[in-house]
Nucleic acid binder design. Structure first.
Length: 415
DNA sequence: AAAAAAG
C-alpha cells in the first residue's frame, strides 16, 4: 500500500513526498485506517517499524481536514525520554512542513527561556504537543494549560513508561483532559500492567499486533564469554578494527558508562557518552555529534536503547548484558536500520551467563559464541554454567541441608 | 536489577 492510497490532505502529501516516504510499512497499513475512522487503538509495535508516522500522519490528516480549536492543545503525545520527544518533533517538522500545523516539544532539563516558550504555547493553544510526563505535570500544576479542545492522546512506548514509574503521572495528565477524545497506545510488549492501563483509558479499542519480539534477521549476532578485566582491552581491540563506522556501546549502569567512556577517551578514541547524569544540553550535543559522525563511538545507558533512530550504525556492543530480553532486542535493533546489515556483539561474564541464557531463550536461538583473541588470555568456557563451574571458588549457592527432604529447594533462612 | 523523569 502506498501513502497516496490513504487519501491524505494535499499539503500533508507534499510533506510525505518530501520526506521520501512511498510505501506504508505493515504497522502503518494496519493502524492508519483505524485512526482515520476515529477508533481507539492499542498496538504492539516496536520502534523501527514506522510507528511514529503511523500515528502522526492520520492525526495530522484529521487535524487538517476537520475544524479544530486553535486556542487549545489538540493532540498530546506522551513519551518516556527527552530524546524520543525531540526525535518525534523532528519527524513531525518534516512531514508537517507544508501544512499550517503548529507543534512544540515539552520536556525537562531546559532552562527558563524554553520553559517560558512552552508556557506560551500551552496557554495560547498549539495543535500538537510532544512531552515527557514530568515537565507536562509541572505545566499542568500551574493551571494555564488549555486542554479544552484536546481530541487526540498518544501514549508511545507505554510499557517503557510504566517501567519507569509513570503510571500515576499519566493518569494525572489524563485527568485534565476532556473525556471525548481518541486514544492511541503503542507498546512493544503487552504485560498485565499495560492491559490495566489500556482498560482504564481506551474505549473499545482496536487491537493490533505486529511486533514479534525478535531482532531483524540481517543483524549478525555474536557473544564473547569473558572475564571482567578482559572487557576493556577487548572492546578497544574491536573498536580499532577500521571496518566499522558508527558504533554504540551499551552499558547497564551510568557508572559503567562513565568508566568505559573515560577509558576510551584516554585511549584517544573519538568517543562520546550519554546518560541521564549529563546536562540536557550535553546530551543533545553528543547526539548531534554522533549523528554527524564527528563522534564515531557512543557509550550509552539504555536511555538510547528504545525508540531512538540513528542511521548508519553498523555495530552495537553490549559491554554489559542487558537486564532482559526486550532490552537486548531494542539495543541491537539500533543497528541494521532500514534493511542494512549490522553487527551486534555481547560481552558476557560468568556472572551474566544465566541472564544471557535467558535472553537466548527469548530469542528462540543460541547466539554464536566467538573466541576471545589469544592475546587477551584464557577466557571462561562458553559452556560454563554459573552453578556447574566454580573452579575452586567459594560456592555461592546454599548447600542443601543434609537432612533435606526431596529434590525441591529447602526454604531459605531469613538472614 | 538498572535506567529515566520535575526542580
Amino acid at each position: 500500500m502506498y501513502f497516496s492510497d490513504f487519501g491524505f490532505d494535499d499539503d500533508l502529501m507534499d510533506g510525505i513526498d518530501a520526506m521520501g516516504y512511498e510505501k506504508a510499512t505493515p504497522v502503518q497499513e494496519q493502524v492508519i485506517p483505524h485512526i482515520i475512522s476515529g477508533k481507539d487503538i492499542i498496538a504492539a509495535a516496536q520502534t523501527g517499524t514506522g510507528k511514529t508516522a503511523a500515528f502522526l500522519l492520520p492525526v495530522l490528516h484529521r487535524l487538517l481536514s476537520e475544524s479544530h480549536d486553535h486556542h487549545s492543545v489538540n493532540a498530546m503525545i506522551i513519551v518516556p525520554t527527552r530524546e524520543l520527544a525531540t526525535q518525534i518533533a523532528q519527524t513531525l517538522e518534516g512531514i508537517a512542513y507544508y501544512t499550517t500545523i503548529s507543534f512544540i516539544s515539552v520536556y525537562g532539563g531546559t532552562g527558563g527561556a524554553l520553559f517560558a516558550t512552552e508556557r506560551k504555547a500551552l496557554e495560547a493553544g498549539v495543535d500538537i504537543v510532544i512531552c515527557t510526563p514530568g515537565r507536562m505535570i509541572a505545566h499542568l500544576n500551574m493551571g494555564y494549560v488549555k486542554l479544552g479542545g484536546l481530541r487526540y492522546l498518544v501514549l508511545d512506548e507505554a510499557d517503557r513508561m510504566l517501567d519507569m514509574g509513570f503510571y500515576d503521572d499519566i493518569v494525572k495528565i489524563i485527568s485534565y483532559m476532556p473525556p471525548q477524545r481518541q486514544n492511541l497506545m503503542f507498546s512493544a510488549t503487552m504485560p498485565p500492567a499495560i492491559r490495566k492501563l489500556a482498560n482504564s483509558i481506551l474505549v473499545s479499542p482496536v487491537e493490533i499486533s505486529i511486533a514479534i519480539s525478535k531482532p531483524p534477521e540481517q543483524i549478525m549476532q555474536g557473544a564473547f564469554i569473558v572475564y571482567e578485566p578482559q572487557k576493556g582491552p577487548l572492546v578497544k581491540h574491536i573498536l580499532q578494527q577500521k571496518e566499522f563506522g558508527s558504533v554504540i556501546v551499551f552499558c547497564s549502569s551510568k557508572l559503567s558508562v562513565k568508566k568505559l567512556y573515560e577509558e576510551l577517551r584516554r585511549a584517544k578514541f573519538a568517543v562520546g557518552s550519554i546518560h541521564s547524569d549529563l546536562e540536557q544540553e550535553q546530551r543533545e550535543q553528543v547526539l548531534l555529534d554522533f549523528k554527524s559522525h564527528k563522534l564515531k563511538i557512543l557509550v550509552a545507558t539504555d536511555i538510547l536503547s528504545r525508540g531512538i533512530d540513528i542511521e548508519d550504525i553498523d555495530l552495537v556492543i553490549n559491554y554489559d548484558v542487558p537486564h532482559d530480553g526486550e532490552d537486548y532486542v531494542h539495543r541491537i535493533g539500533r543497528t541494521a536500520r532500514a534493511a542494512s546489515k549490522g553487527t551486534a556483539y555481547t560481552f558476557v561474564t560468568e556472572k551474566e551467563l544465566f541472564k544471557f541464557h535467558k535472553i537466548e531463550k527469548l530469542l528462540g536461538r543460541e547466539v554464536e559464541k566467538l573466541p576471545v583473541p589469544e592475546q587477551f588470555g584464557a577466557a571462561p568456557s562458553p559452556a560454563a554454567k554459573p552453578a556447574a563451574q566454580n573452579g575452586g571458588k567459594k560456592r555461592k549457592f546454599k548447600k542443601r541441608r543434609p537432612g533435606g527432604k526431596g529434590p525441591g529447594p529447602s526454604p531459605a533462612p531469613n538472614k
